[in-house]
Amino acid sequence: MSVAPKKTTNFSSDQEVRWCPGCGDFAILAQMKKILPLLNIEPENIVFISGIGCSSRFPYYLETYGMHGIHGRAPAIATGLKRVRPDLQVWVVTGDGDGLSIGASQLIHAMRRNVDIKILLFNNRIYGLTKGQFSPTSPPGLITSSTPKGTAHQPLYPLALALASNATFVARSIDTNAKHLSNILKRAAEHRGTAFVEIYQNCHIYNDGAFDFAKNADIRDEHTVELIDGKPLIFGKEKNKAIQLNGTSLEIVPLNEKTKRDNLLIHNEECSSPAVAHLLADMQYPNMPEVIGVLRAINAPTHNDRMPDERLPADTRVQKLKQFFNAGETWEIS
């Protein structure tokens, strides 16, 4: 049964959006409002759950059910909700601090269980709401309010973590790349199982320009490569570079008449092994272009699929309960 697409306005709550002017979160919210009406799901059957941080105010701005959680725990709240309400579409909105630092455990365990939820990780490589400390994804050496001489910590790579956690859908997009982002959000919504989407999101107050290499129209084509299922990884303003597998590493090769097309890496989202996806996740600026798109999308039983469901009809349960009460040794006092 299909439902008429909803107008975008149906999904805007009456709350004033309170991110800093120019925040990348606005762009993500706009794309979300654009794709939600396309899903043919009534607003009352959608739930947004978030943690703590700038990104986690997201649920307040959508006219769906929503829970603004506690720091890092949105995936756990979502897991409980989805377990008892498989009929709902459940989204988790988190950030690099919320999801990868305080809530890293909740994030990886939701993914490895393949709970049927959609996790959006807004990665701005900084703590915004607490005023500019380094985050688990900040590059080494970043000067922040808590690291006057630069952070000495090695960063975590969200896509690599998601792959290592066996997430069944792993993708990356960019806040201002509207067309790409809306497509990825829609694909995440349609995936059955945990969908993990890293979104490069600019915090222009505390870490402005962190993703210039991927956003600046002058240079982004040289430093990003869009993944298209079944196609080679071709990039560059002139579409003159490609990626190929050499031994166990990926390398950049020029694309011209002499290029042996058969040697190029052909992207396969559905590859049962995550090995190549790991190589893609490991491509880092400035040595390599960074991938955007879907790294992995496989079918696997969800958490609810794997859980036993031997439930008896409600009216026979009470009989069974009485049997349990009386199981084992009983005796009468008369």
Binding site: V47, I49, M67, G69, I70, R73, A76, I77, A78, T79, G80, L81, K82, R83, V84, R85, L88, S105, Q106, H109, M307, E310, R311, L312, A314, R317, K320, L321, F324
Partner: peptide
Amino acid sequence: HLGVRTFQAEDEIAAICAAIGASFG
């Protein structure tokens, strides 16, 4: 079969948060 869903969580925090999610549902 009595309609009980148990969830052995990754930690105590996830255990209660999942329960809160279930109550919301």
